[in-house]
Amino acid sequence: MIETCSLAAYTAGFFIALCWPRPFLSTLCIGIGTAINFAVVLDRYNGAWPMMPMHFGIAGLSVVLSFIWICNYGTINRQNGLRQQPESPILLGIIVLVVAATVFFPKDFYVPFLRSNVIWSHVFLLAGIVAKSFLVHGGVKAFAALQGTQKKPKIAALFNSATNWIVYGYGLLTVSLFSGELWCYLGWGTPVVWHDAALTTVLSLWLYWTCFLHLLFIRSWSQKQRSRFVVAGAVLVLFFACHPDMGPFRLPFQGQG
């Protein structure tokens, strides 16, 4: 139920930011939504400790994306308005969708497994969540750069900013991947277990962004093509971050006494 409150706050913040030029009000709504969401996520993590909570990635993603929005757009909106920051409502829209997915497609009923009682499993999970959030934000910036209304210097600045987010996201994704491999080795005796979809998805994303970093060296690719590549990558990140952690459809108050 409490997740539904955070979804309501996020949705209100999104529509206020989109339709009504009251940046403070939208930031307040998002702040409330984030506080509730963060409390829920923290409680879930605390509940599973010392093991790793199962199917936690999607919930963690919404929290980190919210923090990114508040730090980057919450205050800037007050000064410049939404027209100068077209990526702000896009990111907000993604946050609302991700939170809606956690509310309507929950998969948080799985019990943690014993082998996740090791620090590397937590590093794998948390670094992966932050990395995916950075990469999605990079994709949002690249999407904004693709909009026709932008001026050329602004497009270049947006793309450079997107690249910065992606580079740090890639670094964290590498930390996540290697922590996962270390955990695999300690738990199963081999650095890669192919039966686990989590490692397959992280490896897939890691190779995609490795490809992007190589594209920066191919001169024949224009900035527009690279931006499209980044947007496609962000969609892939969202799919791999959300789909494995989504359960069957369930109404928020269903089955509660």
Partner: peptide
């Protein structure tokens, strides 16, 4: 060739994505 690198990386991404579907 760096173009070969890009091609191989994209093929690997497609292959691992297919792997994700097959693993279900």
């Amino acid at each position: 060739s760096i173009k070969l690198t890009v091609t191989l990386l994209l093929l690997l991404v497609a292959d691992l994505s297919l792997g994700y579907i097959c693993l279900q």
